[in-house]
C-alpha cells in the first residue's frame, strides 16, 4: 500500500487515461443505445430521490416504474427465478413479499435443456445449504452464458462456476464497503456514482474498471487537456 507518488506524474497519467476514456465512451454509446434511455429514465424521476421517508418512497416509486417502464417488469420476473432464502431481517421479508406479488408473468426459458440445468443447479444449491451454510447468490446459467459469450470454445466446470459466483459476491461486498466509506466522508446519505468512481481511481486493484467508471471531469478541463495533448486538430 505504498502511495508516494508526486503530483506531477499523476497529472500526466490522468491526461492519458482521460483521452482513452473519451474514445471508449463513444464506442459504448454506439454499441449500447439503451444506456441512453436509462439515463433519461433517471432524469424523469428526480422527485422520488428527494423524499426522505423510506416507507413512503417504495410504493410510489413502484407505481411510477410500472407505469412508465414496462421493460423493468421483465427484468424483475427473471430475477424472480431465484428463491429468496435470506429472510432474516424484516426489511428483506417485506421486499420478498413485494417481489412475490409482482410475479405475474412466468419467466421464458430460451431452451428446453435449460430447465434440466436449472433443476440440477437448484438441487446442488439445496444440498449445499446444510453443509456450507450459504447458497449461490447469482444464477449459474447466467454466469455460464456470460463466460461463453467471450470464448465459445472454452468449457467451464461446475467448480469454476461456483468459484466465480463466490468471487463475485466477495468483490461486490468489498467494493460496496469501500464506496460507502467515501459516502460517509462526504456526509451524504445515498451511495452514488461519484463514490464508486472515487474508489476505482484510488485503488490499483480496480484499474480494470477505470474505463467503465471514469471520475467526473468538467468539460472545460477536458477540453484543455485535449488541446494540450494535441488531439484538438490544429
Amino acid at each position: 500500500m505504498t502511495s508516494s507518488n508526486s503530483p506531477k506524474p499523476e497529472k500526466k497519467i490522468t491526461k492519458n487515461t482521460e483521452i482513452s476514456k473519451t474514445q471508449k465512451k463513444k464506442t459504448k454509446n454506439a454499441e449500447t443505445p439503451k444506456t441512453e434511455k436509462k439515463k433519461t429514465k433517471n432524469a424523469e424521476t428526480p422527485k422520488t430521490e428527494k423524499k426522505k421517508t423510506k416507507n413512503a418512497e417504495t410504493p410510489k416509486t413502484e407505481k411510477k416504474k410500472n407505469a412508465e417502464i414496462p421493460k423493468i417488469e421483465k427484468k424483475k420476473t427473471k430475477s424472480a427465478e431465484i428463491p429468496l432464502t435470506d429472510g432474516k431481517t424484516k426489511r428483506d421479508r417485506e421486499i420478498a413479499k413485494e417481489e412475490n406479488k409482482k410475479k405475474t408473468k412466468k419467466p421464458k426459458l430460451s431452451n428446453g435443456t435449460s430447465k434440466q440445468r436449472d433443476e440440477g443447479s437448484k438441487k446442488g444449491v439445496a444440498e449445499g445449504k446444510g453443509e456450507e451454510g450459504k447458497m449461490n447468490v447469482f444464477p449459474m446459467n447466467r454466469i455460464r452464458t456470460m463466460i461463453k459469450g467471450e470464448d465459445p470454445d472454452m468449457r467451464v466446470s461446475q467448480e469454476a462456476l461456483l468459484a466465480i459466483n463466490n468471487a463475485v459476491e466477495k468483490f461486490l461486498e468489498q467494493f460496496s464497503q469501500e464506496a460507502y466509506a467515501f459516502c460517509v466522508r462526504d456526509r451524504k446519505k445515498c451511495l452514488s456514482y461519484d463514490h464508486l468512481a472515487h474508489v476505482v481511481s484510488k485503488q490499483r486493484r480496480y484499474d480494470f474498471l477505470s474505463d467503465f467508471v471514469p471520475e467526473r471531469v468538467k468539460a472545460e478541463d477536458a477540453l484543455r487537456e485535449r488541446s494540450a495533448a494535441g488531439t484538438g486538430g490544429h
Binding site: T32, K75, K76, S79, I82, E99, V137, R142, M146, E173
Partner: peptide, 15 residues
C-alpha cells in the same frame, strides 16, 4: 442484453 449481465435485484440485495 439482459442475459449478459447479472440480475440487478441480487446485486442490490448484497449491497
Amino acid at each position: 442484453v439482459q442475459d449478459r449481465a447479472l440480475p440487478i435485484a441480487n446485486v442490490g440485495r448484497i449491497m
